[in-house]
Design a protein around this nucleic acid. Structure first.
Lengths: 227, 227
DNA sequence: TGTACATCAGTGAACGCGCGTTCACTGATGTAC
DNA sequence: TGTACATCAGTGAACGCGCGTTCACTGATGTAC
């Protein structure tokens, strides 16, 4: 019996998933800051100390949840974007992305809050969360650069283009160096607007102001289209 | 001695402020979810039960903090916007608003997280927080409608204008009924982008991507200008 | 102005609860000969 | 194939801590006559 399929290994994998699922469910009732190892243990029916056989600390549990949620979101959004058959329809691809992000957020509001809401106090996300985290904004960037545009930013309010160019170095390195600042800014503005719009909706800032969030979001996303 | 200036009344007012200041300072180290009555009491040098002479519960303390923070933010933003002498320079007024919001957010990141980050679990904001909360978005709305524009929304992606119009009823009622959907959407998109951009920055989503947040924000705000 | 009473701020103990993490342990699963 | 040993999952008790809120109380401040 190979190590990875032994009864122990199978049970371990199973239970790891069960613990994570329970933790994620707990997120939905209590928020990430109050996520508790003991409550998770209670939920999966083991003693609290046993959870430490699976996760060395509460922070590692949170890290795993972050990776899972970022990955799940990214996969749904990537699938939605890839489903747009006319690849030259960049507006349609944008709408697919925007809609998929919001659909996921509405379906998993607490997970969304974990990813894009206030940071968990006393918790610092390790590097391994970065890669899954940048997949969705990377998709927006890819959409914009697909247009082949490499034009610089067209400044309106006295923005120093050289300084802006230097400020965006990190993003260029992430995405490949042939990016103009104009497309990068278009993508970032669209991404900011998307996150802002969803946050305003989910965090209750539109209560009594907007009655029909679906059409509202459609109209916002329409105006945010980067391409 | 009138009731409002008696030694007792003075001491009460003073201590109320001290307690709130301590609570707000505690926000900055621990996040709103972990704000603790006992820690505040310890900080101001009284026994935990004594705080209940001033605030009937922890939730009331949070409510007061919300009102204080919303009000402080609104006052700074209103002052910055009012300082733009050329009232026809709507781009300049927008920039004043955007910059003032971000300046306050950067100076008080935990307060910003309290207002625009994830909601505090188990806490429902009462009505009295609404009025101070809408002052800043109201300013953006006012800026847009100052242009006198009452045009409908110009749809790009098959958006039903009637349905959108109905969805925005609450906002129209709040701001006065002569608003076209076009200006309302322009204001909301700008406001969404503003909140999104600041949240991405403060909540750490641009780490290693953007090096110089000042110029980045200036460029984003420039592109978000609603007027 | 002085006294008797009412109001209120702050105390200290208690209730009942939760948390993350460690540690020595039992007993089952896996491995090497 | 069978036995001896090593690995590991899960237990239960404990450490030391924190929390929100209540309650009977003391003693100071305010008020009415």
């Amino acid at each position: 019996v190979s190590a990875s399929t032994s009864a122990r290994a199978i049970a371990r994998e199973q239970l790891t998933r069960t613990i994570l699922a329970s933790a994620r469910a707990q997120l939905g009732t209590v928020g990430p800051a109050a996520l508790s190892v003991r409550a998770v243990a209670r939920d999966v029916g083991m003693v609290s100390s046993a959870v430490y056989r699976y996760f060395p600390s509460r922070d590692d549990l949170i890290t795993e949840l972050l990776v899972i949620c970022y990955t799940e979101l990214a996969e749904e959004v990537e699938a939605a974007e890839a489903a747009v058959t006319d690849r030259s329809d960049r507006r349609g691809r944008w709408w697919a992305i925007a809609r998929a992000v919001r659909d996921w957020a509405v379906a998993h509001p607490y997970d969304y809050a974990l990813l894009y809401g206030s940071p968990v106090p006393g918790y610092a996300a390790p590097r391994r969360t970065v890669e899954p985290a940048v997949r969705v904004p990377g998709l927006v960037l890819g959409l914009v650069t697909d247009g082949g545009g490499s034009e610089p930013d067209q400044p309106g309010h006295a923005i120093d283009p050289d300084r802006l160019h230097r400020a965006l170095r990190g993003i260029r390195e992430f995405a490949g160096a042939e990016l103009g600042d104009g497309p990068v800014m278009r993508a970032l503005v669209a991404w900011s607007g998307l996150v802002g719009a969803i946050s305003l909706e989910l965090f209750g800032h539109l209560t009594n102001g907007v009655d029909d969030y679906d059409i509202w979001f459609a109209a916002v996303a329409d105006r945010l289209a980067p391409a």
